[in-house]
């Protein structure tokens, strides 16, 4: 199934600077697995803060459904 991804700010660097892309992922794929397909390890990547599914912060274990949109957010640290 096709899932739309949007990478916010510094997280673009995780996908060669692409702000938006769509990806064909297998059935029962989790948020974490889908990002893994893109080469992103959510647990160790510095730039990764959280992923939102349909504009709601999501558990990494959430299973994606057709039509879901995933947005990936960086940590906003500076002051």
């Amino acid at each position: 199934m096709e899932i739309a991804f949007k990478f916010i700010g510094m997280t673009k660097s995780l996908v060669d600077g692409k702000a938006e892309l769509t990806l064909d992922v297998p059935e029962n794929c989790t948020v974490e697995e889908s990002l893994g397909i893109l080469g992103i390890d959510c647990r160790t990547t510095k730039q990764f803060h959280f992923a939102a599914v349909n504009d709601k912060k999501s558990e990494l274990e959430r299973i994606l459904q057709p039509g879901d949109s995933v947005k990936v957010f960086p940590r906003s640290f500076g002051g």
């Binding site: 916010i8 700010g9 510094m10 803060h49 959280f50 912060k57 957010f73 960086p74 940590r75 906003s76 640290f77 500076g78 002051g79």
Partner: peptide, 27 residues
Amino acid sequence: YGGAAASGGATMNFLQEDDAPCFRCLM
């Protein structure tokens, strides 16, 4: 909360309401 770096940033209020998240829920 407010944070900014490079060309991006984020902010959120933590209002101490019963069912509301705190910063630790976010991070």
